[in-house]
């Protein structure tokens, strides 16, 4: 059954326990960077960093307010990365997790360029892509993803898709009393395997705007360019098979006319 990771940004306090739990479960190395003036631990996704908590300081009349946004793979139901992967190395589990088969991955980076959310990263030494796999090894055994398991405020919930969607709608009504601009994000944008309650505009969290997020170039490629190209190659092969039949199997009649051929004698 389709599962959903439901992230309620209004409940996030940026403890970054999810970042640690993710590193722990997935056995990812620490990626120590110099302090750059922000409390945000990681600037963005990396080969060893599958989840990050974005931290934005917003100046308001009554002082500074923090906006926290936990980010990871959206596990799109129409996943651009999966569509463009030339080796079918990116796959989908029955629960809806999009994960990479490292044996098939050649590190070409097509997914990196085409993901609307900037999630996949390729290691230039191992030539393998890595990203959040929604802890597929945990969820297929009935556990919740590590980030959800560790979240102390209940900002990261995990469950059946319908239940999570209903919970998100209920929660949205409550959150809107305090954050009038709050929206649900992820259902329309990526198919609902990851749902957000965002208290602000998606751009604040580094997310693309509301609306479906499969790049038009990917659609043009997969639904038009590729099929047309395949038909062209198929038509050529067919033409040559027919020509071979008429030229060699069912030999042409001997010519008697004046038409001279420079053929092989």
């Amino acid at each position: 059954m389709a599962k959903t990771l439901f992230i309620d940004t209004s409940k996030c306090m940026a403890c970054r326990g999810c970042e640690v739990a993710c590193k722990n479960w997935n056995d990812l190395a620490a990626d120590i960077r110099p302090f750059n003036g922000s409390y945000q631990t990681k600037e963005g996704f990396a080969t060893q960093t599958y989840t990050i908590v974005k931290m934005n300081e917003v100046e308001e009349a009554d002082g500074i307010r923090w906006i926290f946004g936990k980010r990871q793979c959206m596990h799109c139901t129409e996943a651009a990365c999966m569509m463009v992967c030339p080796k079918n190395a990116i796959q989908r589990s029955p629960e809806g997790a999009i994960y990479v088969d490292r044996d098939l991955c050649i590190g070409c980076g097509y997914c990196v360029q085409n993901c609307p959310f900037g999630v996949p990263k390729v290691d230039n030494n191992t030539h393998k892509m890595s990203k959040c796999d929604m802890c597929v090894s945990r969820i297929e055994n009935g556990l919740t993803p590590a980030c959800s398991k560790t979240c102390p405020t209940g900002a990261i919930q995990f469950g059946e898709r319908e239940d999570m969607l209903r919970a998100a709608q209920v929660r949205l009504a409550q959150v809107r009393k305090r954050f009038p601009r709050a929206t649900i994000y992820g259902n329309e944008e990526a198919g609902g395997t990851v749902l957000y309650i965002l208290t602000e505009d998606p751009a604040v969290y580094g997310l693309p705007p509301h609306g479906t997020q499969v790049p038009w170039q990917v659609k043009f490629w997969q639904y038009l360019a590729r099929p047309v190209g395949n038909v062209a190659v198929g038509a050529s092969v067919l033409l040559l098979l027919v020509a071979t039949w008429f030229n060699f199997v069912q030999k042409p009649p001997k010519e008697t006319g004046a038409h001279v051929e420079g053929g092989v004698k």
Partner: peptide
């Protein structure tokens, strides 16, 4: 992103012509 389908369509067309 646009370069990928252009590259793809180009080699497929050229290859089908090359076969002939």
């Amino acid at each position: 992103r646009l370069a990928y389908p252009i590259h793809d369509l180009s080699w497929l067309f050229m290859t089908s012509m090359l076969l002939v």
